[in-house]
Structure formats: structure tokens, C-alpha cells
Design a protein around this nucleic acid. Structure first.
Length: 463
RNA sequence: GGCCCCAUCGUCUAGUGGUUAGGAUCCAUGGUUUUCAUCCAUGUUACCGGAGUUCAAGUCUCCGUGGGGUCACCA
């Protein structure tokens, strides 16, 4: 069974890059009928916050990415790590190192002066001399001193590291006894049965260290997939300064989970020429072997297109439910269907859609200058008055077509073009150019409101 | 700097030795529309450079160049 995981450290919100690797992990697990588990890497007490952990879980909930089983918190597993540290100590695969931070710093400085790679040289690796009086110690693992470590990676292929280029006896437990990242990651992944690790390729150079731990403990090494980074428009690793990278900000901005997920799944992954993927299709079609090897640049053009696409293709019932989350209640509006039909082709996000709807529904407080110039030309008030008369005497006015007929009558009787009535009428109704068809607008507003706006316009505009 | 990864339109990408290098987005133009949007059509734009292998290279090899990542008692 395929078991994948997402293992964020709760130092902040869930960002778009993390979400993408989580999505990939989720899809791959589900495609194989396996499990997707969540582990919170909260061993750094100084930088963690509980609120961040809650926020991350909340984001997953919004997106519908459910994790399997209980969430694992590393902070609650100290005993487990301690057991393995003791085991390695007993087996002579790890040892206590009494080198002080100052001594280490000095070592590093002299190595840098000689332009050598900075590394711990194993002073206490097989130490039999006198232990410094009252010295603190860290625990270091015995790394291999020569040879190669090969990371089998499903995206990059086999990545070969030469041990003497990259390894030393790295610390697995700090002087306060707490275990370090590369040590606990390997243990947790192994113990949690994770056999396919999908993560950002900024972890690729950590992987040899983790393999050292796997091997020391006799654990099975999982399959790795190191997903290329998402870069900002400067070509750098995406950071918190690059705008709305908090996943929950996308909700605030009116993007739906569906469009965000579709956007992310196509960033670095593809399935031929297909652009639109339902959640079910993603699960069915996703395969990490189709992940691109190169980094991609984050750019919201496509997200906006997807968002608009999904809004257009969402039912009105669903749309009005979604819109309620943004404070727009349409359930009491008798022409909500027409309103939604007209607006869904004109909005890229739910927030924009709400704003567009608000603009139609609220009485215009002023008439756009440019639009007025075009609209209020010779004879406009006569046209509108004629239309007003017809409007007031009309009996059954419900659908856009009912209003359209009235406009047609005016046009025919006065022998004018449609623009002659369309322009001033539009400005009277919504105060500016653009927007849905006038017949629809009036049907949405209703007879009384339409008359009100018409009279206000005729009364206030000169010409 | 050491090590590692990467390199096709502005952007997301297809492409696994023989293609007019395809799709999407963006942009522009035209059509539809009383306006706007949608929709439809059309168009501009790409294989980082140099060697090599081969009858044939975007595709394989090498060397450059460029970009990125990583080198902690952070994760």
C-alpha cells in the first residue's frame, strides 16, 4: 500500500508551495488506494505556534484534502526518538561529542581560511582520551567515510552524492537532548510506514543524511520524489513576500478550492494537453513520473482563467451558496436566476461576482462622466420619457423579453437606432456603460425600481 | 566557494532521433453583442550557446553559459 505524507513545520500559514506538494502526495496515495497522513514537525519550540498548526489543518479542510488517521505531532514523540538514540549509542553507531560550540566555530573558521569544506572531523568518533571537565555533549551519528550515497528519485532519476563531498558525523541530538531534523524525519517516516516521500527539491541535499539514519537503524528506504520549486517572478524561491501565498488568502480573494487545486496540479505536472481536471480526474490521472523536472514560475493569470471558467460552469444553486460566504444573500431575490446567469460570465472570482452584483442592485449615486457624454445626446430625454410612459402603463412585466419588447416599440415608433435608447437607459439604470443586457437588468430590478431610477435620471440630468 | 538540480513561446506546458515544434494562458485583430462580458475565428512569440555521435538532434554525449537549491546544536 502506498503511504504518503505531508509534514509541515507550524511556523506560519500553509503556503502555495507546501499545498502543491501536499496535493501531489494526496493524489498519489488516493490513486493507489493508499493513505495520506499528516505530521506536524513541531520540534522547534521557539518558532512554532499552535495557531499555525490549526491554520494548516483548517486550510486542508477548506480544500477538501482529508488526511487519513490521526495527526502525528513530533513534539509528543520524544520518548521514541530517545529510544533510537540510545540504541545507536549502544550499538556504537553514534557517539557523544564534547566539542564546544566555540571550538567548532574555530574549526570552521580555519577550514574556511584554507578554502576547505566546513565539516566536523570526527574528533570524538573513536575517542579514548580524557573527557573535558563538565563539558556538555551532543550526539553524533557515525556517517560513512567514503563511497557514494545514491538517492533513488522518481523525478530526478538516481542522484549520486560522493560521501566525502557532503557528509560528516552530523548531530542527531542537541546538547539539551532534543533530536534534530534529519534524524527524526527518517525515524518518523519509517515508523509511520511512509514508503513514498513527495516533497520539495530543497530537501534533496538533506536526503543522504536521512539515508544514513535509515541504514543505521535498519529501516527500509522509501521512494523519493523531489518536486521542483515554485519560483516568484524574480526566479527565486517563493517566499512570504510574494503576495497572497497564504492558502487561506485565496479563499478571502474569492477563489474556489476547485480552481486553486486545478491551478496547482498543473503547475509542474501535466497530462498531455489537458487543462481542466475535476478532483476525481486528478486522482485518476496523477502520476509523479509526469512531474516536470524544472522549476516553474508562479503567475496568477491561469488561476484567474480557471476561476472564471469554474464560475461560469457552476450551477446557480451552488453559486448562491458559495456567495453567501462572502456576505451576499440572494435567497429572497425573486430574479436571482437571471442575476446569476448574467453575472457568472462576467466575474473571475466570487468576490468580484459579489461586487458586480452589488453594483447592479444598488441605486447609482452618480452617473459616469464619459458614459453620460455619450448617452445624453440630443433628444435623449424624449426617448426616455416615451419609454417611461410605456413602462408605467405596462401590465405584465417579468422576464427580460417583456422589457425588451417595450424598448423595441420605442425604437420602432420613434424610428431611431437601438443605441439611442440603450445608452441613456443604461446610464439611468446603473450609472455607467457595461454590464448585462438592459432587459435583464430591468427584469432583475423589477418594474417599480426601474421606474424610480428612470425618473431620477430624467429629473436630475439636463439636456 | 563546495555539492546537487534544472534549461521549449512572456507564463504554464506537450514532445523520449525524422513534427509545418502542438495545446493553454496572456496580448492583438476580427465576428457575435444596443454596452460590457461570454463565445467563436485569426494572428504575433520558443527549442540558452558551442562542439560531438548519427543519414537525421529540441530529443543522446561532452564542454560552456545562465538560473535555482543546499551547505546549522532551523525544519
Amino acid at each position: 500500500m502506498v503511504v504518503t505524507r505531508f509534514a509541515p513545520s507550524p511556523t506560519g500559514y500553509l503556503h502555495i508551495g507546501g499545498l502543491r506538494t501536499a496535493l501531489f502526495s494526496y493524489l498519489w496515495a488516493k490513486k493507489n488506494g493508499g493513505k495520506f497522513v499528516l505530521r506536524i514537525e513541531d520540534t522547534d519550540k521557539a518558532r512554532n505556534s499552535e495557531a499555525a498548526a490549526i491554520g494548516i489543518v483548517e486550510a486542508f479542510k477548506w480544500l477538501g484534502l482529508e488526511h487519513d488517521g490521526e495527526i502525528t505531532y513530533q513534539s509528543q514523540r520524544d520518548d521514541i526518538y530517545k529510544t533510537y538514540i540510545d540504541q545507536l549509542l549502544d550499538e556504537g553507531k553514534a557517539y557523544k561529542c564534547y566539542m564546544s560550540k566555540e571550538e567548532l566555530d574555530r574549526l570552521r573558521e580555519s577550514q574556511m581560511a584554507k578554502k576547505e569544506r566546513t565539516r566536523y572531523e570526527g574528533k570524538y568518533r573513536d575517542f579514548s582520551g580524557e573527557i573535558p571537565e563538565g563539558a556538555e555533549f551532543v550526539i553524533r551519528i557515525k556517517s560513512p567515510e567514503s563511497g557514494e550515497i545514491i538517492v533513488k528519485d522518481g523525478i530526478k532519476g538516481d542522484v549520486v552524492f560522493n560521501v566525502k563531498d557532503i557528509l560528516d558525523d552530523f548531530i542527531i541530538a542537541r546538547s539539551d537532548g532534543s533530536p534534530t531534523y534529519n534524524f527524526v524525519v527518517a525515524i518518523d517516516d519509517a515508523l509511520m510506514g511512509i514508503n513514498e516521500v513527495i516533497r520539495g527539491d530543497d530537501h534533496l541535499s538533506n536526503t543522504p543524511k536521512q539515508i544514513v539514519v535509515y541504514e543505521a537503524l535498519g529501516f527500509t528506504i522509501p521512494m523519493f520524489y523531489h518536486v521542483p520549486m515554485i519560483h516568484n517572478s524574480d526566479g527565486k524561491k517563493l517566499s512570504k513576500r510574494d503576495g497572497a501565498t497564504d492558502v487561506m488568502d485565496y479563499k478571502k480573494q474569492g477563489y474556489t478550492p476547485q480552481s486553486l487545486l486545478n491551478f496547482l496540479v498543473r503547475l509542474g505536472w501535466s497530462h498531455g494537453d489537458q487543462e481542466i481536471f475535476s478532483f476525481e480526474e486528478m486522482i485518476e490521472l496523477f502520476d509523479p513520473k509526469d512531474i516536470n523536472k524544472s522549476a516553474s514560475i508562479y503567475n496568477t493569470e491561469k488561476l484567474n482563467w480557471l476561476s472564471a471558467h469554474y464560475i461560469k460552469n457552476t450551477s446557480n444553486a451552488e453559486l448562491s451558496k458559495l456567495l453567501e460566504e462572502y456576505g451576499l444573500i440572494l435567497s429572497s431575490h425573486d430574479k436571482a436566476e437571471i442575476l446569476l446567469d448574467e453575472m457568472k460570465d462576467r466575474s473571475t472570482t466570487l468576490v468580484a461576482m459579489k461586487e458586480n452584483i452589488d453594483e447592479i442592485l444598488k441605486v447609482p449615486t452618480e452617473y459616469d462622466e464619459k458614459a453620460s457624454k455619450k448617452a445624453f445626446k440630443e433628444g435623449w430625454s424624449e426617448v426616455l420619457n416615451n419609454f417611461l410612459t410605456k413602462l408605467e402603463s405596462a401590465q405584465e412585466l417579468h422576464l427580460p423579453n417583456d422589457y425588451h419588447k417595450l424598448m423595441e416599440e420605442v425604437v420602432e415608433e420613434m424610428e431611431i437606432g437601438f443605441g439611442k435608447i440603450g445608452m441613456p437607459l443604461r446610464v439611468a439604470m446603473i450609472g455607467k456603460m457595461g454590464g448585462p443586457g438592459l432587459d435583464s437588468i430591468m427584469a432583475i430590478l423589477g418594474k417599480a425600481e426601474s421606474i424610480k431610477r428612470l425618473k431620477k435620471c430624467i429629473g436630475t440630468q439636463r439636456g
